[in-house]
Design a protein around this nucleic acid. Structure first.
Lengths: 156, 156
DNA sequence: TATAAATAGAGGGATATCCATGTTTATGGA
DNA sequence: TCCATAAACATGGATATCCCTCTATTTATA
């Protein structure tokens, strides 16, 4: 007898559903950015770094901001550094830290990315509606930064 | 002169925001499923296959359902097949096609996954609210299956 | 029937992402 | 000062995911 898996509401899995949408949207944004040579994740990293250029973040800080593991940030920065789009500078006071900055070439690349990104962004909001998109982002940010079940469910 | 990237509403990027939430939620579901040895993506694949056991899907059909590229499905099935959780059977009529099924071992694994998944699902809905979660899934499905900008924006 | 076009998958190569572990550097206490 | 601890990052190994190209097979067409 195989365990008879009853009709399971797995179609209602919040995680799988979110991932499906994330994959699809990423494909479309990636396609839009393709002429620039950057992928959506790379653009997101560089935009975040550029935004903070007055106080260049460490890899750890970048990881927090991007909701990525520190090791993932390290991995993701590699091709960007290899291509000369970002630079890493050791902190003078704390030699463990490395601050990330966008290079001149990186800024030029971002200038190329911007209109492509804006186009994808517009097409998405034409589809979903600007108001709905804003609400969606608010929910996503809440999920990304505020959801941590451990705090309430570690008693047993 | 470096191009001076003006304050860009990139913080409002729908794609990046969705990915952040997707990463975070995936980490939490993965952590919940860890005792089973399956990751959330693997569970999603197996659940979809098991759900369709009366008419086992081909890899192409599976890709459509999961919003994945065909090549990705192939990659993702590999460890599951290696571990004996799913099986691939060539179609008798069309020898190009391969139908995917869950094995006995796979069903046993799913039985182990279910309560773990249900726990993660509950914790998320306790956080966001069941109603809000349902709305979110509806939006995600709409984005995943209905958004395709090419149809309206290929005139130039 | 012979062949062109389309379809299903496989394979290679790249980035994205995690976890677990190791290394270096700082920090705090005896 | 010396050592234990903690923090920041690097490394290795695995899966996830895409794109592009290739092969095998089927279907449509001349």
């Amino acid at each position: 007898m195989s365990p008879n898996i009853e009709p399971i509401p797995f179609g209602a899995c919040n995680c799988s559903t979110l991932r499906k949408a994330s994959r699809h949207l990423s494909q479309l944004y990636d396609a839009a950015l393709a002429p620039s040579g950057l992928k959506s994740t790379q653009a997101a990293i560089m935009m975040e770094v550029e935004r903070r250029k007055d106080d260049p973040p460490t890899m750890h800080e970048l990881a927090k901001a991007l909701v990525l593991e520190q090791s993932t940030v390290g991995q993701n920065l590699r091709p960007l550094e290899r291509d000369g789009l970002i630079a890493l500078k050791q902190d003078a006071a704390d030699r463990r830290r490395r601050h990330v900055t966008v290079t001149e070439a990186g800024r030029a690349k971002l200038a190329m990315v911007l209109p492509l990104w804006a186009g994808a962004q517009k097409r998405f909001e034409d589809f979903l509606g600007s108001k709905e998109a804003a609400e969606l982002r608010a929910t996503m940010l809440k999920v990304a930064y505020e959801f941590s079940p451990a705090s309430e469910d570690d008693s047993g």
